[in-house]
């Protein structure tokens, strides 16, 4: 069921963006009409990728080929292949916590590379325990501090993150800031 909720992380994301007219924003949650309306119609260039679809594609072809030669490099080449320091902001949503252990550090490293210095990244992590079922949602931006959550599927949480482990994950970035929401979601603002 769709649900609207306020998001301090989203508000902070937009506040952190440089107030320039032609920013480049990357949305890793797939194409969304709502997000296009908020970002692209304001004159910014919006790039969209769906990391979870990319992950499913990786798994499907890995099964077909029965071998997985450097899946991280392939995943990055197929889904995050952008020039360095390309983006002012990246909307990662909750996609990172569903990546396998071998994919996560290289993907975070690539996000660091394609984000401009001073650029901002917004990502979410559930606060539930490993193995608990969570809704994987589409996150539609209603305004600069409100999100509409549209569940797309349910999955068991592959692992649990706490503040400490997230600080380690984003150790190469300049700063990491957390907002704990009531709906078991930790909103994380990361600045390069």
């Amino acid at each position: 069921m769709e649900m609207d909720r306020s998001s301090n992380g989203l508000r902070q994301f937009f506040e952190n963006l440089p107030h320039e007219s032609r920013m480049r924003i990357l949305d890793l949650g797939g194409a969304s009409q709502a997000n296009i309306n908020i970002i692209a119609l304001q004159g910014h260039k919006l790039y969209t990728e769906d990391l979870l679809v990319g992950l499913e594609r990786l798994h499907a072809t890995a099964r077909e080929q029965e071998q997985r030669a450097n899946p991280a490099a392939r995943f990055i080449r197929e889904n995050l292949h952008f020039p360095p320091a390309q983006f002012d902001g990246i909307l990662v949503w909750d996609t990172l916590e569903f990546l396998e252990e071998e994919l996560l550090p290289p993907v975070v490293s690539q996000l660091h590379a394609i984000l401009k210095p001073g650029g901002t990244l917004l990502t979410f992590f559930h606060t539930l325990a490993k193995g608990e079922t969570v809704h994987v949602c589409r996150y539609q931006i209603r305004d600069h501090q409100t999100l509409r959550l549209q569940p797309r599927l349910s999955r068991p949480l592959p692992r649990a993150f706490n503040n400490r482990s997230l600080e380690r994950l984003f150790a190469n970035f300049h700063s990491v800031k957390f907002f704990l929401a009531k709906d078991n979601l930790r909103e994380v603002i990361v600045t390069r």
Partner: peptide
């Protein structure tokens, strides 16, 4: 349900 991958410039 539509799939789009790329950039959008309005």
């Amino acid at each position: 349900g539509a799939y789009f991958k790329g950039s959008i410039d309005i």
